[in-house]
């Protein structure tokens, strides 16, 4: 049984990372993606916070899925999520004041991140604990990956650094527009373009192979 289960759980994991990537494919949780992706450091911190909340709340929801009445399930999910977000918020403040200031209101705003509520409603409330856990990890990694995609582009071109370390020479002219608000929209737009181009190519190739 164990050998049979492994590919399936791996499949669940990969689904979150690539095929159903929450940001690039399902277009969920855009607000934090756009807002905190101006440096790589912020991206990692945000990704970790959101993944922690996602994994913990998915597991808990899945554990209690038989005890939560249908009518009040959304409210229950939100309370569970809000509890974990409060924990994350206070822990982050204790670890690094600087990081917590940089992320600002977007840590408490994880509560209303549609990815987390979406996974609780669409997956965790219908599947067992192990499956929900793997799904949450996959989605969390997928979310962090998407954040990093944006963060790397915006920090390298916008400030000439990665993780605060300069990568170009001193003569590099910064594209300062990329670290401001419009830059977030443009970068995400460009990435979506790249992904839809890749998908389109895959489709044409598949069609060519069949014919």
């Amino acid at each position: 049984m164990a050998e049979k289960n492994l590919p399936e759980s791996l499949d669940t994991f990969v689904k979150g990372l690539w095929r159903e990537n929450p940001v690039f494919v399902m277009l969920l949780g855009m607000c934090p993606v756009l807002a905190v992706s101006n440096t790589v450091k912020n991206c990692i911190a945000m990704g970790l916070c959101a993944s922690f909340v996602l994994i913990m709340s998915s597991t808990l929801v899945s554990l209690f899925r038989k005890h939560i009445p249908k009518q009040v399930r959304i409210a229950t999910f939100i309370i569970i999520i809000a509890t974990f977000v409060t924990i994350v918020d206070y822990v982050l403040k204790a670890i690094s004041k600087e990081l917590s200031d940089a992320l600002g209101a977007f840590v408490p705003l994880i509560v209303v991140n549609c990815i987390i509520l979406g996974r609780a409603e669409a997956y965790a409330s219908k599947h067992n604990v192990v499956k929900s856990f793997i799904d949450a990890v996959g989605m969390g990694v997928g979310f962090t990956f998407a954040l990093l995609c944006l963060g790397v582009v915006r920090e390298t071109l916008g400030m000439g650094t990665i993780w605060g370390i300069p990568v170009f020479g001193a003569n590099f002219e910064r594209w300062s527009i990329l670290v401001t608000a419009p830059g977030g929209f443009f970068t995400l737009g460009a990435w979506l373009l790249v992904f839809s181009w890749v998908r389109e190519r895959g489709r044409t190739k598949a069609k060519g192979g069949a014919a």
Partner: peptide, 22 residues
């Protein structure tokens, strides 16, 4: 072009709007 249609185009548009609001 069909590749641009949908979310990508909307986001670029939002970027231009955001630029205007700056």
């Amino acid at each position: 072009p069909s590749v641009v249609k949908g979310a990508a185009l909307t986001l670029v548009l939002a970027g231009i709007l955001s630029l205007a609001f700056m």
